[in-house]
């Protein structure tokens, strides 16, 4: 565990040295701000923050988190630092864990920046704190899954751009396309595809519900991708 924290701290420091991280945070906050201004901060609008974090936000998140996570391992492969890292007494799982936590903390910091909106809303109307909590939990769980997917693709290739693009495409497919295709199908196929759709699960949180099945969906898929990331890191050395 100590090694995980050591790697997490190094990852966080590396982000705050890079212009990319500031760009991503800025982009995210600006977009969220525009949405807040257009959809929520209006007379007669609902006093909640779900306008800011509508389904469109998932696409933005998929893109940003893919960009944020693509360097995690690809850069180590490219620079050769993976060699010194993996010959230090750390296990593959600790490396993946450390990098994952680093990205998750970074994402959580990014989300903290949006807490201004619920505060603003509460000044002008009765904020539904339960709904707000559910929204943030949904955002956090979705981000946690996206980061795991991004990390997995970064563990597969030394090319950051390939890793980022692959992660974004897969995330976009699982967020929207499965749902879209599912609606055109019938029977079990429809149910299966909709169950795989991240947007479906996310929507439930946006309605203010914290449903155990949806929480389980996010936790298990995240775990699967983290496991795959550890295997991908192992596999690169076995070739």
């Amino acid at each position: 565990m100590r090694n995980v924290m050591t790697i997490t701290r190094r990852e966080l420091a590396a982000w705050f040295y890079s212009p990319m991280a500031y760009g991503v945070i800025t982009l995210f906050l600006v977009l969220a701000g525009i949405m807040f201004d257009l959809l929520t901060f209006e007379p007669g609008a609902e006093a909640s923050i779900r306008g800011v974090f509508g389904p469109w936000m998932l696409l933005i998140l998929a893109f940003m988190l893919a960009m944020l996570t693509m360097r995690l391992l690809s850069e180590e492969y490219r620079n050769g630092t993976i060699e010194t890292l993996m010959t230090a007494p750390v296990t593959d799982a600790e490396v993946i864990g450390g990098k994952y936590l680093g990205a998750l903390v970074f994402y959580a910091v990014m989300l903290l920046g949006t807490l201004i909106y619920p505060v603003l809303v509460s000044k002008y109307g009765g904020l539904d704190s339960g709904l707000t909590f559910a929204c943030y939990l949904g955002l956090l769980l979705t981000g946690a899954l996206y980061i795991a997917v991004g990390l997995f693709f970064s563990a597969c290739t030394q090319n950051q751009i390939v890793a980022g693009l692959a992660a974004f495409v897969v995330l976009a497919v699982f967020t929207f396309l499965t749902n879209f295709i599912g609606q055109m199908q019938e029977g079990t196929l429809r149910v299966t595809l909709q169950h795989l759709s991240v947007a479906e699960h996310y929507e439930s949180f946006m309605r203010g519900m914290i449903d155990f099945t949806h929480v389980t969906f996010f936790i298990t898929t995240t775990a699967v991708f983290l496991f795959l990331a550890v295997k991908a890191l192992e596999f690169r050395r076995w070739r």
Partner: peptide
């Protein structure tokens, strides 16, 4: 791995870190 030190051919390092930070990080890993 606890008993060896290794300098790969290209001496790969993290360019954004200061040498002291890097050594501190490596010491923690050990």
């Amino acid at each position: 791995r606890r008993n060896i030190g290794y300098l790969p051919e290209s001496a790969p390092l993290y360019p954004e870190m200061r040498a002291r930070e890097y050594l501190n990080f490596r010491g923690k890993l050990h």
